[in-house]
Design a protein around this nucleic acid. Sequence first.
DNA 1: TTGTTTTTGTGTTTGAAAACACTAATTTTA
DNA 2: TAAAATTAGTGTTTTCAAACACAAAAACAA
Lengths: 233, 233
Amino acid sequence: MPRKSKLKSRKLEELTSIWKILTKEEKEILRQNYDVKEFKKGDIIYQEGEKPTYLMCVVEGQVKIFRNGFGGREQIVRIITPVSYFGYRAHLAKEDYVTSAVVQCRTVIFFIPLKSFDIILNQNIKFSQTFLKFLAADLGIADFRVANLVQKHVRGRLAESILFLKDNYGCEADGATLVVSMTREDLSGLSNMTTANGIRTLSQFVSEGIVEVNKRKIKILDEEKLLNISHFG
Amino acid sequence: MPRKSKLKSRKLEELTSIWKILTKEEKEILRQNYDVKEFKKGDIIYQEGEKPTYLMCVVEGQVKIFRNGFGGREQIVRIITPVSYFGYRAHLAKEDYVTSAVVQCRTVIFFIPLKSFDIILNQNIKFSQTFLKFLAADLGIADFRVANLVQKHVRGRLAESILFLKDNYGCEADGATLVVSMTREDLSGLSNMTTANGIRTLSQFVSEGIVEVNKRKIKILDEEKLLNISHFG
DNA sequence: TTGTTTTTGTGTTTGAAAACACTAATTTTA
DNA sequence: TAAAATTAGTGTTTTCAAACACAAAAACAA
């Protein structure tokens, strides 16, 4: 259950990519309607089939967007890290959610009612274009991933996922350790394979000196090789 | 090679979904800059890695958007049928194309320079929102398809694809025969399987009385069963 | 801190689909 | 209209990864 917290200390200014393009009046609309909530690991933000009601923004933590498959297997569609928006796609397409969202660890999320979102969308062309760009980028990733997930073998898919996590969410100060950290199960879900195969294959990569693993932190040692595996199975 | 034709008889008014939301001046911009070309089967519109330069609209025929995989296998990402736009995603994400586009049969396409597109995008909020909706819808389909293609077995994937073709491109007057017609190879590419398995599985469906096949036209006889297969492998 | 649950790790078996290898039938084009 | 090139169709073999089945370790709660 989302626990409403006294997190109003977290200001809307944190929504960097959109805050600066809003007019005074628009900022005021958000100020009067926004909400901040804190979630703990495993909390569900929304589920497949529900109607979207908020534009959400992760300012701290990590959210997993996924679809439930058959036999309990889940396919991870996107990972949302700070500062990124989610929940708006279904609304813009005038659909119910086709995915579910759960938080991966302690996570702070801003909630903006879609009514406010629509008001601004209808008057601020830069705002509208910002989301145009978000969607276009995500669709590119999805198109790319469909073909990859579907055609490559386990090694290629895992290599691909690790590089994807690096490219999209970045590394820590050492330039090699991934910022996102996830369980083997989630990494497997992202790579479209069973947990057992994910663990096995990651272990292979470790023994081949391609990556180093410390708990749930993955450090890329040989990106060249990883790229190679991702490319040629 | 695209052959420029005397197709100026085809008027921009055919671009139904956007034409009605443009101002007089914007219509004039398009009139002065657009182009119409006719292509024949197999002509390439653009290829992976190229820079986008036009917003395109199919007004007649069919275009296949795909990614080249390994060992010559291609993954079909989208099919564009009249009247739909394509080529703008990469531009909006400020990327090069990650897919390629070829025409499937005799096809007539409108070309609008991205410069003109940008001008209108920057001043007409309804125009911008139209594309917002297109992208949001396509991203939903992509998210949905990733999980489907990846988790289901051949029968489920083929059933899914046939239903997808029906839902997205419609049926002929009888309400059962798919409008889109494609080779077994393309149907297999859409369903992420080898041509041999696509043919085999389609034949199975025919012998089970689920669909009827006449050349490249597919008629759905038992949608219930198809849904069932698509859902439970 | 102890018990419980989740996550990680590994071996074996089994099944499904890819790869391969052809033939037949259609389309296309020269 | 004949020849060439696709496309459709089918059987066999091989390979890969899922399913199953555990054991061990780590994380989490009571």
